[in-house]
Structures are given as structure tokens and as C-alpha cells.
């Protein structure tokens, strides 16, 4: 069995992920790299366990699924934090015009 190279795995994962991310890639790269590294490390661990006969292919799939779930959970948090940032920006924009608008309209709209 060929030895898995963690750096090569990571390089391929990052190159593949950069395409769907497109313009958002610079902002997402650091988080994605960190999570892909954990998945790659998990694959290398699984490879060593399989080679030593300490894990079956079915157990290997289960281990990798747990790691993938964790990475997806982390990326979902990044998505949530991004939404909160957008929300804060919209509310800040509305906040600075609040007095002007309410005064002009003669009632509290904002």
C-alpha cells in the first residue's frame, strides 16, 4: 500500500475547494486549511491503524465521518459569524441615519 503524504493531500484539497469558493476564498482559506489539515491527519492516522490491522475498513469510514462532521460544524460556525457580521453592518448603516430619517418623517420609523 502506497504511503499517504499529508502535505500532498492538503494541497489537493485546498486546490479543489478554492474553485467553488471563488471570490470568498481569501477569507475562507485559513479556516478551510485548518479543517482540511485535521481531515488529512485523520486519514493518515486511519492509514496507520489499517496497516497495523487495528481497524477495519468499516471502522475507518466511521472515524473519518466523525472528523468530517466536526469540520462541517466548524465551517458552519464560520458561516454564522459571517451572517452576524453582515447583520451588524446593516444595523450600523441604519443606526447612523436613524435620527435624520425619523426627524424628516416626523415619526419613529427606525
Amino acid at each position: 500500500m502506497a504511503k499517504i503524504n499529508i502535505d500532498e493531500l492538503l494541497k489537493q484539497m485546498l486546490a479543489a475547494a478554492a474553485k467553488p469558493f471563488k471570490k470568498q476564498w481569501p477569507g475562507a482559506k485559513d479556516y478551510a486549511e485548518s479543517e482540511f489539515k485535521k481531515i488529512a491527519e485523520s486519514i493518515v492516522f486511519i492509514e496507520s491503524q489499517l496497516a497495523l490491522g487495528k481497524m477495519t475498513p468499516e471502522q475507518a469510514r466511521l472515524h473519518l465521518d466523525v472528523q468530517k462532521n466536526a469540520s462541517r460544524t466548524v465551517l458552519l460556525t464560520i458561516e454564522g459569524l459571517g451572517i452576524l457580521t453582515v447583520e451588524a453592518a446593516i444595523n450600523a448603516a441604519l443606526g447612523v441615519i436613524r435620527d435624520t430619517v425619523n426627524t424628516a418623517l416626523g415619526f419613529v420609523l427606525l
Binding site: Q49, K54, H63, V66, A70, T73, T77
Partner: peptide, 20 residues
Amino acid sequence: EQIKPLRSAFNASFTAILKL
């Protein structure tokens, strides 16, 4: 030796949920 990576994955999940 298989428990350590599982613990790490579970804690990463818990941390992410709490962080959000």
C-alpha cells in the same frame, strides 16, 4: 489510541456550536 482523535473531533464540534 483511537479515542484521542475522536475526543478531539467531538471537542471541535462542541467548541464550534458554543462559539456561534
